[in-house]
Design a protein around this nucleic acid. Structure first.
Lengths: 196, 196
DNA sequence: CGAAAATTTGACATGACTCAACTGGAGTGG
DNA sequence: CCACTCCAGTTGAGTCATGTCAAATTTTCG
């Protein structure tokens, strides 16, 4: 198999901070390329999450299963996004979530040991993580507002505008779950939309 | 009026990072003590948020108003919590939210200029913010899961367990709004609980 | 004490879910 | 390349959770 290019990760990081060549090397050393075939699980509830994942190609879904056995999708992630169970990874506690590859997926994954090494050797990564978490936090606020203030139809319409490319790639039932509604109701909403 | 003690802020920061005396001074210099009376607005939608607030005493409510005029509470914050419209503050863009004092409230507030100065003069604050945002992000994940996977009754019960002290302090309608339900329905849930 | 706001209550409306049946397309093995 | 299976998506009937609106009651605060 051809060598996997790790370049997209560096490009991604450079959106946050400047990186010099020595640092580039350290960063790349700390990330391991790995392939996960479609439908495989990268993480299961109860297992300690040993990696955070940067997606080079493919699609990952983070979800939990409630007491009645229903799955709830926390996030749908594609190329150039980070994905993981942060709480489990950082604290080395059993995961609350499952992570599943919805497509054949190529990632760069980092272990906690390497994460700490990286923070130590490249102190400016501290800033990168700060900015990254800061942005994620701002995005999460929007989602919470949506959940508490919008109807299912409004959430659907907003998703349609914001992430049409994801809607095309993943099964509807996963998007329905992400938006907090049943696949049946999602289907009804779609039908209604055709009319307009 | 007696001098306001800024000590709780330092105690709070020390939960994240070690701080030496010189740094203590810089940190305190960057934070301004300010009093907001009950019912006053610390921030309004459309205004650029010039401060983040650390609450020494009192209670702040962050909320938005939807197109139909209904208020939706994003967070209810008490002593020793940070509060603000992060997006507006960082990007110097018009705020999406309102922030209102639900009680007479004493805060330490920091401006963007001082925030940047602090990051520059006390680099380890970068770590403190990273950790702080990291924790907030983990907490937000839990809230999103709750919103998409739990019924109103389950959300109410969980709140009762997690934040009984807040429930005692603020109007029910604000908690109802935080939990994404109407005050009328919240009231019905309470009545049902008395039975068990 | 009195006015205003918060909470409760009830009747009614509706958004969203459940369950079951049906349809169609994608993947798989022969 | 076809036949088969399986799963995603659709549809419909019936139900339940939650919202709306308006009025009565209680609490809070000036």
């Amino acid at each position: 198999m051809a060598e996997i290019s790790k370049a997209p990760l560096l490009d991604h990081l450079k959106e946050f901070i400047a990186i010099d060549p020595t640092e580039e090397e350290t960063i790349l050393e700390c990330h391991e390329a790995k392939f996960y075939p479609r439908k495989s699980l990268l993480l299961q509830k109860g297992i300690i999450s040993r990696h955070e994942f940067y997606i080079l190609k493919g699609c990952l879904r983070v979800y939990m299963i409630d007491m009645s056995g229903t799955e709830h999708t926390l996030s749908l992630n594609i190329e150039n996004w980070w994905c993981g169970d942060l709480k489990s990874f950082i604290n080395e506690t059993p995961a609350s979530y499952y992570i599943q590859a919805l497509e054949d997926t190529q990632v760069l994954q980092i272990s906690l040991a390497n994460w700490n090494k990286l923070l130590e050797k490249v102190p400016k990564m501290e800033k990168r993580f700060r900015l990254s978490f800061q942005n994620a936090l701002i995005a999460q606020n929007d989602r919470i507002i949506q959940n508490i203030s919008m109807t299912a139809e409004e959430r659907y319409l907003q998703y349609l505008e914001k992430y049409p490319h994801i809607l095309q790639r993943v099964a509807q039932k996963h998007v329905a779950s992400y938006l907090g509604m049943t696949p049946e109701f999602f289907s009804i909403l779609r039908r209604k939309m055709v009319g307009r």
